[in-house]
């Protein structure tokens, strides 16, 4: 007699009426099914009485309202204050603050319904995350190790930035962009920290406009601005390398031109 497979049990637990004849005659499979059901029900009951605290709900509402008020009044966003007994949640609020910095210019996003602007907001959000003091990077003195890390996370090896002339790679990390995993290099430059985010999207779909200048190697460059950040993107092969930083397009172009030369 062939017993019911684990996958078939999952179908039965989902309510599919299958293998009923076998179940009627097989005590072993009936016991296994009963055990799986018991575990599922116990798990469900363990969470049954669990609810988010009213404090959490209030905090989320207040933070969203603060973000909206800042957008409409053009005033800086006031972060929801922490009560003293919840100071251990400071990292959460730091994260919230970083996101709120991005939320302020989202008035453009909401007003124009522009997915391109949303993409730019996400790119700037990744850069803002990279600037957080507690941001963890994968860093290694050997470029090969960084490339290996990105390959293991992304499934391909992005072009590796050339450094020198006052530029150094702080590390690389991955994040989500348009619900996909993307990699970014974080580079210290004499003008400040920039992120080079590698995405598959074409610059035009990111709402960027073509620049009149080209890189030293002659590649076409694209630019956009969002919040306080400038973005300059170069397409290499199947990927767009988007440099994001709080510096001018002109200088960003110079940096990415050197980094990708």
């Amino acid at each position: 007699m062939n017993h019911i497979t684990d996958e078939r049990f999952e179908d039965i637990l989902q309510g599919e009426e299958t293998d009923l004849a076998h179940l009627r005659q097989c005590q072993d499979c009936r016991d296994r099914l009963a055990e799986k059901k018991a575990i599922a029900e116990r798990l469900r009951s363990a969470f049954g009485s669990m609810h988010a605290s009213p404090e959490l709900a209030d905090r989320i509402s207040q933070t969203l309202n603060a973000a909206t008020a800042a957008v409409t009044s053009d005033r800086p966003v006031k972060r929801v204050s922490l009560s003293s007994h919840r100071r251990q949640l400071w990292p959460a609020f730091a994260a919230a603050a970083a996101i709120l910095i991005v939320l302020v210019p989202l008035s453009v996003y909401f007003n124009t319904s522009s997915t391109a602007k949303a993409a730019q907001a996400e790119l700037v959000g990744i850069h803002q995350e990279n600037l957080r003091p507690d941001r963890e990077f994968f860093s290694d003195a050997e470029p090969e190790k960084l490339a290996e890390y990105l390959k293991s996370e992304l499934g391909f090896s992005p072009a590796f930035p050339c450094t020198g002339q006052g530029m150094a790679i702080r590390g690389c990390c991955v994040a989500h962009f348009r619900e996909r995993i993307v990699g970014s290099y974080v580079v210290d430059t004499p003008q400040g920290v920039i992120s080079i985010i590698v995405v598959t999207d074409r610059p035009k779909s990111l709402g960027m406009s073509r620049m009149s200048e080209r890189t030293r190697s002659g590649q076409t460059c694209w630019k956009a601005s969002f919040a306080r950040c400038s973005m300059v993107t170069v397409r290499l092969g199947d990927y767009s390398y988007c440099a994001v930083g709080e510096i001018s397009h002109k200088y960003l172009l110079e940096l990415i031109s050197r980094l990708l030369s």
């Binding site: 969470f47 669990m50 988010a52 605290s53 959490l56 905090r59 989320i60 933070t63 969203l64 973000a67 251990q88 949640l89 990292p91 959460a92 994260a95 919230a96 996101i99 709120l100 991005v102 939320l103 989202l106 996003y109 909401f110 319904s113 997915t115 949303a118 907001a121 996400e122 959000g125």
Partner: peptide, 27 residues
Amino acid sequence: VALCGGRQEADDLVQETYLRAFERFES
């Protein structure tokens, strides 16, 4: 809570989730 195991970390994760969701609500 299922992911984090602890309620405090879960609060933090939920708050970040809602902020991120608000940011991307257009999608």
